[in-house]
Design a protein around this nucleic acid. Structure first.
Lengths: 205, 205
DNA sequence: CGTTAAACGGATGACACATTCCATTTACGG
DNA sequence: CCGTAAATGGAATGTGTCATCCGTTTAACG
C-alpha cells in the first residue's frame, strides 16, 4: 500500500471520528471527505460504502465500552463497578455525539453487534445481581433501567450541545443516587425496555 | 365559511395532531393530507405553510402546559405541585412524540413563544423556591435541572416508542426521588442549561 | 340551477446526498 | 531520473424526499 494512501486513510478516519463526535452520525460523507482534505471519490476508494466507514470509525470506541464493563466486573466492590461503567459509558456518549446515541439506535444491525450485545447484557445482569446482593443497589432496580438511563442520557446529550459533558454528569449523579438502596418508596414494575427494540428508525409511509 | 371547508379544516388538524403525536414533528405535510383524506393542495388552502399548521396543531397542548404550571402554583403543598407539573408535562411528552421533543427544540422561534417562556420560567423558579423553603426539595436543586429532566425524558420518549409512557413514568419517578431533600451527597454546581439554548437544529455547513 | 368557493391530482422545482466516471497527478521501484 | 500503476480530484449521475402551486373538476349554497 502506498504511503500517501495509508496517510489519507488515517486522515479520513480521524475526520470521520471528529465529525461524528461533534455533529452526530448524520454528517454526509462529502463533508467528512472535505474535512479530511480529500475528494469524495478518494474516501470511496478506502471505504466502499458509508456504513463501512462508520463501522471502522467506531470500532475503537465500542471496544472501550466492552473494556469498561470488564473492568467493572473485575472490581471487588460491585457498586463501585456499577457506577463506574455507567459513568464511563455516559461520558463517552456525552463526549461523542455520534456514539451510542446514533450508533446503537441507527445501526442495530451493523457489524457483529449481536454477539457483543448479548455478552454485554449478560455482564450487566451479573453486575446488577452482585450489587443487589451487597445491598447497595435498590431491590426494585431492573437491568432495563440501564437502557432507560442510556436513553435519558442520550436525550440530554443531544439537547445540550455545548455543555453535554457537565449536563450528562449531573443527570447520572442524580440517577445513581436514586438507584442507591435504602431511601425511597419502591417503584412499580418496569416497562420492558430491551436494547434491541430501541428506536427502529421511523419507518416512512 | 362553507360547511365542508370547516369540516375539512377540523379533519386536517386532527390528522396532524395524531400524526405528530405518533411519529414526531417530521411527518411530511403530504402524509397528513392523505391521512386527513384530503389533497395536499386543500391543506395549503387552510394553512398557508407547514409552520402555520404546526402552530395551530400544538396551540392547545401548549395551553395545557401553562395550565398545569398554574395549578401547581395554586397548590398549597409546593412539593406536590412541583411533582405534579413535572409528571404532567412529561406524560404529555410521552403521549405525544411531537410535542416538546420536537416543538420546543425545533421551533424555538415559532409563535409568541418567548413571552410564554419567560412567564413559564418565572413560575418554575417560584415553585422551586417554595419547595425548597418547605424543605422538601433538595437545596442543591437548580431550576435548570427541570430542563435536564425534560431533555432526559425526551430521550426516553424518542427511544422507547411503544412503551414511552411507562418508561417515562419510571424515569420521572427515579428523578423525583432523587430531587427529594434529605438523602444524598450534594451535587456539584450545575451546567448552565437554559431552555432557549437547546438544540439549535444542527446547522448544515 | 347557476355561481363560485373549495377540492383534487398531478405537476414543479428545490435540495441534499450517496456513489461513480474519467482525466490528471503522484509515489516510488528500478 | 523515469515510467507506470496506483491514487486522486472535480464534476457528474442518479435517487429520494419534500414543500408548494396550477388548471381542471366538483359540489355547496342561495
Amino acid at each position: 500500500m502506498r504511503a500517501d494512501a495509508r496517510h489519507n486513510r488515517e486522515r479520513i478516519l480521524r475526520a470521520a471520528r471528529e465529525a461524528y463526535a461533534v455533529r452526530g452520525i448524520d454528517v454526509p460523507v462529502t463533508t467528512i471527505a472535505r474535512r479530511a482534505g480529500v475528494a469524495a471519490a478518494t474516501l470511496y476508494r478506502h471505504f466502499p460504502t458509508r456504513a463501512a466507514l462508520i463501522n471502522e470509525a467506531f470500532a475503537e470506541q465500542f471496544a472501550h465500552c466492552v473494556a469498561a464493563l470488564d473492568e467493572a466486573l473485575a472490581d471487588p466492590d460491585p457498586w463501585r463497578g456499577f457506577c463506574s461503567v455507567i459513568e464511563k459509558v455516559c461520558a463517552m456518549q456525552a463526549t461523542d455525539r455520534g456514539f451510542t446515541g446514533a450508533f446503537l439506535t441507527q445501526f442495530p444491525d451493523a457489524i457483529d453487534y449481536d454477539s457483543e450485545r448479548t455478552r454485554a447484557e449478560d455482564g450487566i445482569a451479573e453486575l446488577v445481581r452482585r450489587a443487589k446482593d451487597t445491598g447497595q443497589l435498590r431491590e426494585d432496580f431492573d437491568p432495563t433501567d440501564i437502557t432507560l438511563l442510556l436513553l435519558a442520557n442520550c436525550g440530554v446529550v443531544e439537547g445540550s450541545q455545548q455543555v453535554s459533558p457537565a449536563a450528562s454528569r449531573r443527570l447520572v449523579t442524580y440517577l445513581l443516587q436514586s438507584f442507591r438502596a435504602g431511601h425511597a418508596e419502591p417503584l412499580a414494575p418496569p416497562a420492558p425496555l430491551e436494547l434491541h427494540q430501541i428506536h427502529q428508525p421511523a419507518r416512512r409511509h
